[in-house]
């Protein structure tokens, strides 16, 4: 078999011409003084800074050294298997979205769309408002959010998990340890010993709000030693919360449904507040089947709710009506109202 390789000869003139035009076309930004590089980078938007940072390690370091307006990222895992997003934020404004679709794009396999992100090469299609990639995987999402968070030196503001079967996108799999808000709508986690839920409660530091909607009910699972200290705690399936954990909570707002706590536990909580100087606490709402016993508030010198002291409703949504509640006053003058019904106890300041 004859193997001929066509050889290409470029004349000296052609080479000089190509070199001349290459020099004319390129702008060796990295050879500029740092001040100039920084000034150029500050004029770029987030996706362009991101792309520039993936060019080389030096580029990444330069972006890291540049001031930027971003305040944090949101990690959103959508419902079903459809998508996940890493959203860059400046305050309430969305700056950019790195979007992972569940399905693979066949047309995206173009060399120019490949970016080296952390320890992975990811194919992205760049759009003005978002950068899309196909094939949603935990590894990819993990690499992506860590890279963006590190690049702009910003925290995770919100982690949001929709109703999906993919437990590999829960905080434990992604290695999330800290965020301001964690909203887990529904999880179909049937893993033995529910490690994902334990991880969220034991290992993730949530500062503002933790909401866990539906989580499969395990009769033998009890959380014995966790401490909740976020501003707002909302657990829709709170059977695993024990008396000790409940009394140790240091939150402004606590809402728990399907709790296994008794009226006595809640009376102890009220007693603890009454004898403390805690000014953080605002509201407790507990719904449970074990609240049949009437709370004995006599020790707090209660008075019937008085519309002149406090309005009829707690907030604009009018979900909490004080009309049959009891008012108690702490030694520092703070007024609290307790209301008990067949299914729930409310204790608000």
């Amino acid at each position: 078999m004859c193997t001929h390789r066509p050889s290409v000869f470029l004349s000296k003139r052609t080479i000089l011409f190509l070199l001349f035009h290459t020099c004319k076309m390129t702008f060796p930004l990295l050879k500029l003084p740092f001040l100039a590089i920084k000034n150029v980078l500050q004029n770029l938007d987030a996706p362009d800074k991101f792309d520039f940072s993936t060019c080389s390690r030096k580029c990444r370091r330069l972006v890291k050294c540049t001031r930027h307006p971003y305040t944090g990222i949101d990690v959103i895992v959508g419902s079903g298997r459809s998508y996940s997003s890493v959203i860059l934020r400046t305050g309430d404004r969305t700056c950019y979205d790195w979007y992972c679709r569940g399905q693979e794009y066949s047309r995206m396999r173009v060399r120019k769309d490949r970016r080296t992100v952390g320890d992975m090469t990811i194919v992205f299609r760049k759009k003005p408002d978002k950068m899309e990639t196909g094939g949603l995987m935990a590894d990819k999402l993990k690499v992506l959010y860590k890279y963006i968070s590190d690049l702009f030196n910003i925290p995770i503001l919100t982690y949001e998990y929709g109703n999906t079967l993919n437990v590999k996108l829960l905080p434990m799999a992604l290695g999330i340890k800290k965020c301001e808000q964690m909203i887990i709508t529904a999880v179909r986690d049937y893993t033995l010993d529910i490690p994902h839920l334990r991880y969220v409660i034991d290992n993730v530091e949530v500062s503002k709000k933790l909401y866990i909607g539906y989580y499969p009910h395990y009769s033998d699972f009890r959380m014995e030693s966790a401490r909740f200290s976020m501003d707002i705690l909302h657990l829709n399936t709170a059977a695993f919360i024990t008396r000790n954990v409940f009394l140790n909570m240091d939150c402004s707002v606590i809402e728990m449904n399907e709790a296994s706590l008794s009226s006595e536990d809640i009376l102890d909580f009220i007693n603890q507040w009454f004898n403390s100087k805690n000014i953080r606490f605002e509201k407790l709402h507990i719904a449970s089947d074990n609240l049949k016993t009437q709370l004995d508030l006599n020790g707090f010198n209660p008075k019937l709710w008085n519309s002149r002291v406090r309005g009829q409703y707690y907030d604009e949504r009018k979900q909490m009506n004080f009309s049959s509640g009891l008012d108690i006053i702490r030694s520092d003058g703070l007024l609290a109202t307790v209301k008990q019904s067949a299914e729930a106890i409310e204790f608000v300041l």
Binding site: L30, D48, D51, C55, R111, D113
Partner: peptide
Amino acid sequence: SAEQIRTVLNI
């Protein structure tokens, strides 16, 4: 894109 940036800036 990243590759185009590399070309323009000779990185």
